[in-house]
Nucleic acid binder design. Structure first.
Length: 609
DNA sequence: AGAGGTGGTG
DNA sequence: CATGCACCACCTCT
């Protein structure tokens, strides 16, 4: 365990409530190359909760700025210190501190180190992905922090207590030894470049979340209401058809209306219906099973499901999350939400809003503020390009370099037909076979999975897969090598250096083969998905820098895995669209050299691409 | 509260 | 031997 440069029981701190005290503290802090930063607030929401304390400390002493007694907006040296790009700020979950400080004082911290992200990088694929400071302090310093003091700040309006000050001071002091331990590990695992990328991304994500996205509430409600009517029609049809099969079939409610036979949202009740009453043996009521049953009940259930899904998952709940101050949605993006390095998103999850459709054009409700445009750009078939580059497969590289329709080209190789620009029209069925294989194999899909998807026998599917790999021989070699290396080493990595670890099962584990197969598939996919994530994160940083450098009136509002959306003042939107596309390409080209990287921008009043 | 089923996204 | 990667939200059921 490392030596500590502070007392756990009596940490050294100064509580600051006047500008004079603040300036004396800042004079000391300005001498430090590394600072620990933490904030205490009445809650976690930067626009509606209140900032209470900002702790900024050296490794031996914490200075606690009382944000209620000081006007931190009007302390130039405070701003200069936290925005100084040369001073490292140690944080734990720095996105939160960044947002809270920026929203309430206008100070945008720069040069962050984040022990939460660092731990996520060091243990990707293991554990839960959630790391508390308390947990890290226990692990690295064998020290038990009392975190119950934190709760005392929730909705707090009273005078700051000594207990609160001690707690607040410790939160910056412990960051230093944790940082040193993690840093050693990051260097040992060659993860410093990935860490730099993640740390640079944090303030971009913070800005993105603070900016949020506008949603047209009225239009959203119209869509939901329309879907609700359709859903209710199918629900009634379903109940009418099914009612005779139940004992309560003649029952009516208070108003004489027939009562529902079953809860059609209950998979177990549906299984009972199909297996025991309709005489149709099914093991699951999922969409892929239902579509194979030629029965009116299955059909009407599928239609009901389509509407019910949209209403329950994307209905009123999303609108309730619109911020009362900004009137926009401010979702939570988690930088290391996925083990592969991808973001995840929640409250609400903007990465699963349905694509626009005739009946449910949800994304059309995402609009720019008046006088602004949405600039959307996504990488075109990026994962395919990554696979081509990483595998070095000559055929795949040729197809992507010449801009051929990749699935048609694949089909032409698989089935020995001449490729032409109208292949898609000439052999739509062959292309339709090639397409899911192209995607599926990047996920390590086997004959079973493919046969289930394209509706053939596993033998036929295996034959297709064989044809695919004969067309792209280096792709098979590459995927196999990824699986082998991961099993041998216990981890896989992206060209950017991002690692994902695997818990190998013991040979006596009854699920040994299943678990090993999982690892093999995950390892085949990780370099591909992870490289996509690496590129998007670089792109976000590049874009943020360009917005500033060009003095563009606009902001990044959200990102969906291979897509970035910005909100840009109308007169600058077209120019920005080109810059955005260029910067995304530049980010992609850091990793992809053998095939072109293409990003297609789109300027409009709605979110689409 | 947590697990399992289902289904939306890339 | 098991059989498609990565998520999150909502629902039911225990």
């Amino acid at each position: 365990m490392p030596e500590l440069n502070f007392s756990v029981d009596k940490p050294e701190y100064t509580y600051i409530t006047t500008p004079d005290e603040a300036n004396r503290a800042l004079e000391e802090l300005e001498k430090e190359p590394i600072l620990g930063v933490d904030v205490e607030s009445t809650g976690t929401e930067p626009y509606t909760e209140k900032l209470l304390l900002v702790q900024v400390g050296s490794e031996t002493k914490s200075y606690i700025f009382d944000a209620r007694k000081l006007d931190l907006k009007d302390l130039p040296r405070f701003k200069a210190l936290l925005e100084n790009p040369k001073t490292i700020k140690l944080t734990h979950n720095g996105k939160f501190d960044y947002k809270m400080i920026k929203a309430q004082t206008g100070v945008a911290m720069d040069n962050l180190y984040d022990s939460m992200l660092a731990e996520g990088i060091l243990t990707a694929g293991l554990g839960s992905g959630l790391y508390s400071l308390k947990g890290l302090v226990k692990q690295y310093l064998d020290l038990t922090l009392k975190k119950d003091v934190r709760e005392t700040f929730e909705g707090y309006t009273g005078k700051v207590t000594e207990e609160q000050l001690i707690y607040s001071a410790l939160d910056t002091l412990v960051l230093f030894p944790v940082f040193r331990e993690q840093f050693r590990k990051l260097q040992k695992e060659n993860l410093t470049n990935v860490a730099k990328l993640e740390f640079a991304t944090t303030r971009v994500v913070g800005d993105m979340e603070l900016k949020g996205v506008y949603v047209d509430i009225e239009k959203w409600r119209e869509i939901i209401d329309g879907l609700g009517k359709k859903r209710d029609e199918f629900a009634k049809q379903f109940q009418d058809v099914v009612r005779p099969f139940y004992d309560n079939g003649n029952q009516t409610d208070l108003f004489g209306d027939p009562v529902d036979a079953i809860n059609m949202n209950s998979p177990s009740q549906l299984l009972d219906l199909f297996n025991n009453r309709l005489g149709i043996e099914i093991s699951s009521t999922g969409a892929s099973v239902l579509e194979k049953i030629n029965h009116p009940v299955a059909k009407v259930l599928s239609q009901y499901r389509g509407y019910e899904k949209l209403i329950s998952a994307f209905g009123e709940k999303l609108l309730s999350q619109i911020n009362s101050v900004t009137h926009r949605l401010h979702p939570d993006f988690m930088q290391l939400g996925a083990a592969t390095g991808r973001f995840s998103c929640k409250n609400p999850n903007l990465q699963q809003i349905p694509r626009n459709s005739e009946e449910a054009p949800f994304r059309e409700c995402f609009n720019p503020a008046p006088g602004y445009k949405l600039v959307t750009a996504d990488y075109s078939s990026f994962e395919m390009r990554i696979l081509a580059d990483l595998s070095g497969d000559a055929n795949m590289i040729k197809a992507l370099t010449e801009g051929l329709d990749i699935h048609s080209y694949t089909a032409s190789l698989m089935f020995d037909k001449p490729y032409s620009s109208d292949f898609k029209k000439l052999y739509p069925d062959l292309r339709q076979i090639a397409k899911p294989i192209g995607f599926g194999l990047m996920y390590g899909m086997g004959p079973m999975g493919l046969s289930g998807q394209i509706g053939t026998t596993p033998d036929q599917a295996e034959d297709y897969i064989e044809k695919y790999f004969k067309s792209y021989p280096s792709v098979r070699d590459f995927l196999d090598k990824m699986a082998r290396d991961a099993v041998r080493q216990g981890w896989s990595s992206t060209p950017g250096g991002r690692k994902r670890w695997y818990n190998k099962p013991s040979k006596t584990d009854p699920e040994y083969r299943k678990k090993m197969s999982n690892i093999e598939r995950q390892a085949k996919n990780h370099p591909i998905q992870g490289t996509n994530a690496d590129a998007v994160k670089y792109a976000l940083v590049f874009l943020s820098n360009r917005l500033k450098k060009e003095g563009v009136d606009g902001a990044i509002t959200h990102t969906v895995h291979d897509e970035i959306v910005c909100e840009i003042r109308e007169d600058q939107a077209e120019d920005w669209a080109h810059i955005q596309s260029q910067e995304m390409v530049r980010a992609g080209e850091l990793f992809i050299k053998k095939v072109p990287v293409i990003s297609e921008p789109f300027v409009g009043d709605v979110w689409e691409h």
